[in-house]
């Protein structure tokens, strides 16, 4: 009986340990919610993240080996495309939307500005296949990787066979992307009790909570839902946003709500990059909101902010910039992998 009890005890301890490990596998702080991304479908490993990193920076993913994911999602821009209102892809073709930053993706249910894709593993298929982004296909990439001097070995290290499939490529890419966690801004340090807000930041935080937080909820600073924030439709792009996907007129001009983290690195702002500065963004919210049936309820009565309040708010938003995240070596290009390649 005693042995039986010991076995049961050991089983409980092991299970608890296993669950504990599983829970923290994304290395996220306690004040973050439960991630949406299902790790069970793509168990995390360092080897996968590293391989995903190599693929992310490899222009081999595009039809003429010129464009990598990082071309439009560079680490110093919190994986957005700084200074480009619309991103440009293969053959210098210009896209129709602003490349969104990539961080805290495991907490997001929908991807793309219109939420066309709700599966992170599948997301990469879109830029890979798009004629103005990478102009390639997953089949083409499988072919290139199979004949590559290094990749088959790396897949073999992970999967114990050198088979390269679409599923494996996409899951490895997703694995690198979920590793992009931004949780080291001043705001995060304050959550951990290692820093404090200045008076002006507190004032800005209060303005934020009463005017912005319904869409840009803490601690991710987005609900990652969709909203029409009163932007006039761009006559050259005629982008109706979420309605294109749902075909529902009430989704006209709804776009995915972006996070307010890392704004210092991710300008220009909005789905079409129409605003270059946060001042312009606040001018829109206080003076430029266009009324329409699908306008978000929080904006129906307008937002009023004095110049000083706007300055305080922008100061608070500065506490959401995560310098450690954008400078972290582990998210950057693995130069050795590519340099040695060229010598071969």
């Amino acid at each position: 009986m005693k042995i039986k009890r010991i076995i049961i005890g050991a089983f409980i301890v092991l299970t608890a340990t296993y669950c504990g490990v599983k829970k923290n596998v994304l290395d996220s702080p306690e004040y973050f919610p439960v991630p949406h991304y299902n790790i069970d479908n793509n168990p995390i490993s360092k080897a996968k993240t590293t391989l995903g990193n190599n693929l992310f920076y490899d222009p081999l993913l595009s039809a003429n080996n010129s464009i990598s994911c990082a071309s439009c999602h560079s680490p110093h821009a919190a994986f957005a495309h700084t200074d480009h209102d619309l991103s440009h892809g293969i053959h210098d073709s210009i896209g129709t939307r602003n490349a969104p930053p990539l961080f805290n993706l495991a907490w997001q249910e929908h991807f793309m500005w219109d939420g066309a894709i709700d599966n992170l593993d599948a997301q990469a298929l879109a830029p890979i296949s798009h004629a103005t982004e990478m102009g390639s296909s997953i089949n083409e990439i499988v072919g290139k990787l199979k004949n590559h001097p290094k990749y088959p070995g790396l897949f073999n290290d992970i999967y114990k066979d050198s088979l390269i499939t679409g599923e494996r490529i996409l899951k490895v890419l997703a694995q690198f992307q979920v590793s992009l966690i931004s949780n080291n801004s001043k705001y995060d340090q304050i959550q951990r009790g290692t820093a404090t807000f200045t008076q002006q930041e507190i004032s800005g935080y209060n303005i934020f909570t009463s005017n912005c937080a319904s869409c840009h909820a803490e601690p991710l600073f987005s609900s990652y839902g969709f909203a029409n924030n009163g932007l006039a439709i761009d006559s050259t792009l005629k982008d109706i946003g979420r309605q294109k996907i749902t075909k529902n007129p009430m989704d006209s001009m709804l776009f995915k709500i972006p996070s307010l983290r890392n704004l210092a690195y991710t300008f220009p702002y909005m789905h079409d990059g129409r605003f270059n500065t946060l001042r312009e963004v606040l001018k829109h919210y206080t003076q430029g909101v266009q009324k329409s049936p699908s306008l978000h309820t929080a904006l129906k009565n307008g937002i009023t902010l004095t110049k000083k309040e706007q300055t305080d708010l922008i100061t608070f938003l500065g506490t959401l910039n995560d310098r450690l995240f954008i400078s972290s070596k582990k998210h950057q290009i693995n130069r050795d992998f590519f340099i040695k390649n060229e010598g071969e």
Partner: peptide, 11 residues
């Protein structure tokens, strides 16, 4: 997805 039966631009 190499079967060409997964959408590339949506779910």
């Amino acid at each position: 997805p190499t079967t060409r039966m997964y959408w590339t631009w949506q779910n």
